[in-house]
Amino acid sequence: MSSGLAAPAPTLDRKVVAGFAALTLAGVLAPALPAYPLTLLTQAAIVAVLAMSLDILLGYTGLPSLGHAAYFGIAAYTVAILATERQMGLAGCLVAALLLATATAALFGVLAIRATGTYFLMITLALGMVVWGLAFRWVSMTKGDNGIAGVPRPGLGLGWSLAEPLPFFYFALLAAALAWAAMGVLVRSPFGLGLKGIRESESRMRALGYNVWLHKYLAFVISGFFAGFAGVLWAYYNGFVGPADVQLVTSVETLLMAALGGPGTLAGSALGAVAIVFLKNFVSVYTKRWLLILGAVYIGVILWAPRGVLGAFTREPRGAR
C-alpha cells in the first residue's frame, strides 16, 4: 500500500526529466551558438512562458482565452514606460508590471469567468481588444502606434551586462525555468488537480463541494500573472513594445502554441512555442510560402493529433493496466 501513496502519474516524471534535459542542453550549448540562433532561443524561452501560462487556462481548466496578449502586453508596457521614462531598475519594473498585469487579470476575470465555451472566448477577445485599444489610443502614455522603443536591458549589478546576447539568454532561460517550475508545482498541486476536475465536469465538482467560480477565477488571475512575467522578459528582450504585442494575432498565436504542443501539458506548450518561433524564423528564410507550411502544420495537428504533439506521444494505451 505505501508504495502507491506518493504516486502522481509516472508520465509527469518523464516530462520533468525531459524538460530538465532540454534546459540543460540549451544552457550548455548556448556559448557555442552564433548570435542569431541564440536570439531565437531567448525569444523561444520567453514565449514558452506565455504559452505555458495560457495552458493553465486552456489545457488544465478548459478555458480557451483569446485575450492573453492583454496581460503580457500590459506588463511589457509597464516595463517599457518605467524603464525609459523613469529609468527604473529591474526590481521596480518587475514588481510594478506583475502587479498591474495581475490586477488586470483580476478585473477581467470577474467579467469573464461566468461565461463558458464560445462566450468565454468572445468575452476574453473583447477584453483583449480593449487593452489593444488603450495601447493604440492612449498616446500620451503608450506613444500609440509608434510604440515605445529603446527599453534598456536591466543591470543586475553583477559585473556583467545583460546587453550581450549570451548573458541575456541565461537570464531569460533561468527566468523561464523558474516560471516553469512554479507552474509545474501548481498544476500538480491539489489546486491544480481541482482545475483538471473542472475541465472534466463542473457539475460534479460543485456537487463535491468545490467553489468552481473561485477555482476558475484564481486560475485566471494566476495565468495572467505568469503571462505578465513573460511580458516583462519580452520588453527587455525586444527593447521595444508596441500595439502589435497586445493585438489579437499575438493571443491567437499563443493559443496555437499551447494547442500545438498539447494542451494540458506544460512541456508541450513550451515545445509548441519553441517549434513555432523556429518555424517562423527559419522556414521563412527558405521559402516565402512559410505561412502555408505553418498553416499545414496546424491543420495536421488538429486532424491527427488533436491533443497536440506531446499529447499524441503520451496517450495511454487503450485499457491500460
Binding site: 506518493a6 491539489p190 488537480l193 481541482g194 465538482m205 468545490y210
Partner: peptide
Amino acid sequence: QALSPVKLAMHRPLGR
C-alpha cells in the same frame, strides 16, 4: 480534498 482547505493549496505537489 473537496471539503478541506487543502484544495486551494498550490505550493506543493499533491503527491506530498
